[in-house]
């Protein structure tokens, strides 16, 4: 098999290790970099190194942060008795965008998934349990509404129950602004189940 010269084939190989990038895309990206101005590629490389070396996980909530504890955990304006549990840092951003939530977070960095060998000790569950023992009035579980997310929520609820902490789950329902007729059947029947009196 003919191969590219070593620096190029090495770049293609490294790029194709990234999630969602196959060999063809890796090749396209590599050649894009070869034809880009030198300082643009240097900026990309620096951005990658900076992002990786200047950030860490907050020692309280495990969100990605520059300073430890993170901005949210050290803020005086947040309600410290409410913890919202999410799967990944991107979920924190999603909930923050609402501007509605004033409590703290806890990032699990995954969900229970025995099929993939992920048990309670492989995600930040023990750390969550430790936090629930401090004065906490409510834990909001905002894991994804699929089997793994539900099982993880159930796991948290069971422990919270034994230490008398109130747990709530995000509601399932219709997307706002959408048309009823375009909602899929499963979402619609969940929304029916969770209907509210007006």
């Amino acid at each position: 098999m003919p191969k590219y010269v070593e620096p190029v084939s090495r770049l293609i190989e490294e790029l194709s290790k990234l999630p969602g990038i196959g060999p063809k895309t890796a090749q396209r990206l590599a050649f894009h970099m070869l034809s880009s101005p030198r300082d643009e590629v240097v900026r990309l490389a620096e951005a990658m190194i900076d992002a990786r070396t200047k950030t860490r996980q907050c020692s309280v909530c495990f969100n990605i942060t520059v300073d430890d504890p993170c901005e949210i955990c050290s803020s005086a304006d947040r309600d410290r008795t409410t913890i919202c549990v999410v799967e990944y840092p991107r979920d924190v951003i999603a909930i923050e965008r609402t501007g509605e939530y004033k409590g703290l977070y806890h990032v699990l960095h995954g969900v229970l998934s025995p099929m993939d060998g992920i048990g309670p000790n492989d995600i930040k569950l023990r750390e969550l349990v430790a936090r629930m023992k401090e004065p906490v009035s409510e834990v909001i579980v905002a894991t994804d509404p699929n089997v793994e997310g539900e099982a993880t929520a159930m796991y948290i609820a069971r422990i919270a129950h034994t230490i008398n902490v109130r747990t709530t789950r995000l509601a399932h329902g219709l997307p706002v602004g959408g048309d009823l007729e375009y909602a899929d059947e499963v979402t619609l029947s969940r929304a029916l189940e969770g209907r509210k009196e007006i």
Partner: peptide, 13 residues
């Protein structure tokens, strides 16, 4: 689909 996934997880345990 959800049942099949849950079953695979349980069997893994």
């Amino acid at each position: 689909r959800e049942y099949t996934k849950a079953l695979q997880h349980r069997n893994s345990i």
